[in-house]
């Protein structure tokens, strides 16, 4: 499968060369990310390739927050890094048996995955972002999750991160309240 590389500065390269075609043509390409790729890099990429903004209506307001805070260098000490991964979940009960497939963005601290929705986006921007393995949850058993190597497309990354960060419109005062 064709692969593209996401650089730390947000630039997309293919076979070592800067992308010259429309970014829409590589949405289905698998991605590999710079080891130093951060959430900042993600928003720099979306800014450089404006077509990506149209993937989700939530990206524009997220970019507004990013543009006000990029380069601030501040990151929460409650997290070490960010992890983007896929999950396949088979459910037998309650309800009808079903199979769900979704992506998640979590914070990582001491090898534990933490929910991000209580963090402010401003505090996540400088954290490194990496791609994780596919998690296979069978019949609700979250203790013994199977993990497999997998791949991610550019579309999955952009749309998945937009969805996850759409839960982060927390007023800045909220952390004080808690």
């Amino acid at each position: 499968m064709e692969k593209i590389f996401l650089n730390k500065n947000g630039l997309i390269t293919k076979n070592g060369k800067k992308l010259t075609t429309s970014v829409l043509k590589v949405l289905g390409n698998t991605i590999e990310m710079d080891e130093a790729f951060t959430l900042n890099s993600f928003f720099m990429m979306v800014s450089q390739y404006p077509d990506l903004k149209n993937i989700s209506e939530i990206l524009e307001p997220l970019l507004e927050i990013f543009s006000k805070n990029c380069g601030s260098g501040f990151k929460t000490e409650e997290l070490e890094s960010l992890l983007f991964y896929k999950t396949i979940e088979i459910k037998g009960f309650p309800g009808s048996p079903s199979l769900s497939f979704y992506t998640s963005l979590k914070g990582v601290f001491s090898k534990k995955r933490l929910d991000l929705k209580f963090f402010h986006l401003e505090n996540l921007l400088d954290h490194k972002l990496s791609l994780g393995k596919l998690n296979h949850v069978v019949f609700g058993d979250r203790e013994d999750v199977f993990q497999y190597e997998t791949f991610y497309t550019l579309f999955e990354l952009v749309e998945g991160i937009a969805w996850e960060l759409s839960f982060n419109f927390n007023p800045l005062e909220c952390s004080i309240r808690r």
């Binding site: 999950t87 979940e89 769900s100 979704y102 998640s104 929705k117 998945g160 969805w163 996850e164």
Partner: peptide
Amino acid sequence: ETGAARFR
């Protein structure tokens, strides 16, 4: 999970 919430 927020990821799963989109389908449920």
